[in-house]
């Protein structure tokens, strides 16, 4: 295939309720090549999870207004009907979550659910589907996979369940995997196992991955490219090294400075002042301006342009300054 696998242009998501309108995503553009891993980094309310869910049209249709253009593997996602969506979800794109119990039905065995998913998307019999389920459980390194086929989700430990959910998501060999903080609820020693497993499976299956996380370290471990979100927009993007080492936007700069790591004992943390913006009352200019050290009147009144810093490295800022770390 030529051209990008995923292309998102001007994606906006509004949530409407009787009291207020929440501007969750405010014009997100990005493209993803087949087999590429994009880390979407942001804090709560930055719009990272909403962007991900919009790619699968998982947001409640009655309260949500989606606009923009989202194309995944040739499918125009925002105009698909229910039937097309069913084939698309799980077949072309699948998703893993923070809480694996959400992905599984507690009353069926793990093996049956994986086999079920395979039969829904491919023209194969039950025996072949179960064979695929077993193969998948082995590929995600679940010990004694054969026995685990007949286990119920609640009989597995946290890390095991996460692996089983990955097996379920990859059973139909999707071209794109969406990962919504899949390791956040896990213990440290288990988290690293899952991250390494995902990296390995990504190479093996050659699929593209969008990995949403709030943890810089996790994003570094999995991403080829990274995009940092704030106030429903991508404020900086580039290779992982660009974003971590040659950070240009004041928000990721502040985020990196305030993230505790290594031997920082005795030094005062450079915290970003203030709190994230209220998404129902977005400022007119740069969303980060109220918290930014460098903000001037332009920042507060005019939306910032995209500044190209290097090939593929862009920041949405009136005065980007690369700070080398």
């Amino acid at each position: 295939m030529t051209g990008p696998l995923v292309s998102v242009e001007g994606l906006r998501v509004l949530f409407k309720s009787a009291d207020r309108t929440v501007h969750a995503v405010n014009g997100v553009d990005f493209a993803l090549q087949p087999g590429e891993v994009l880390g979407l980094l942001g804090e709560s309310g930055s719009g990272k999870s909403v962007t991900l869910k919009a790619l699968l049209r998982l947001l409640p249709a009655s309260r949500t207004t989606l606009s923009g253009k989202v194309t995944v593997a040739g499918h125009d996602v925002l105009s698909m009907d229910e039937r097309a969506l069913r084939q698309y979800r799980g077949g072309v794109v699948s998703m893993i979550f923070q809480e694996p119990m959400l992905a599984f039905d507690p009353v069926f065995t793990v093996g049956d659910q994986i086999a079920e998913a395979v039969m829904r998307h491919e023209d194969v019999g039950r025996a072949a589907a179960r064979g695929r389920a077993l193969e998948m459980l082995e590929r995600v390194r679940i010990p004694s996979a054969k026995r685990r086929l007949d286990a119920y989700p609640h009989e597995m430990s946290g890390g095991m369940r996460q692996r089983a959910m990955i097996a379920l998501a990859l059973a139909c060999k999707p071209q794109l995997l969406l990962a919504d903080e899949p390791t956040t609820a896990l213990d440290a020693t288990v988290q690293i196992q899952i991250l390494l497993l995902l990296r390995e499976l990504q190479k093996e299956f050659g699929m593209a991955v969008i990995f949403v996380t709030h943890d810089v370290g996790v994003a570094v471990e999995v991403s080829d490219r990274m995009a940092v979100m704030y106030g429903g927009r991508i404020v900086e993007r580039g290779s992982a090294a660009d974003v971590i080492r040659r950070t240009a936007h004041p928000y990721p700069q502040g985020l990196l400075a305030s993230t505790v790591h290594g031997a920082m004992r005795g030094t005062r943390l450079e915290a970003i002042p203030g709190a994230p913006p209220d998404l129902s009352r977005m400022p007119t200019g740069c969303a980060f301006a109220p918290r930014c050290r460098l903000a001037d009147d332009t920042c507060r009144s005019v939306a910032p342009p995209i500044a190209a810093l290097a090939p593929g490295h862009e920041a949405e800022c009136h005065q980007p300054r690369v700070l080398s770390a």
Binding site: V190, Q191, I192, L195, L196, G217, S239, R245, G262
Partner: peptide, 24 residues
């Protein structure tokens, strides 16, 4: 194991091997 399970902050020196297997 706990210390080496911490995610790396360096894109050029990512963790290559999980220090221990399995769940607690």
């Amino acid at each position: 194991a706990l210390l080496s399970a911490m995610p790396s902050m360096d894109p050029d020196a990512r963790t290559q091997e999980a220090p221990i297997a399995g769940d607690p």
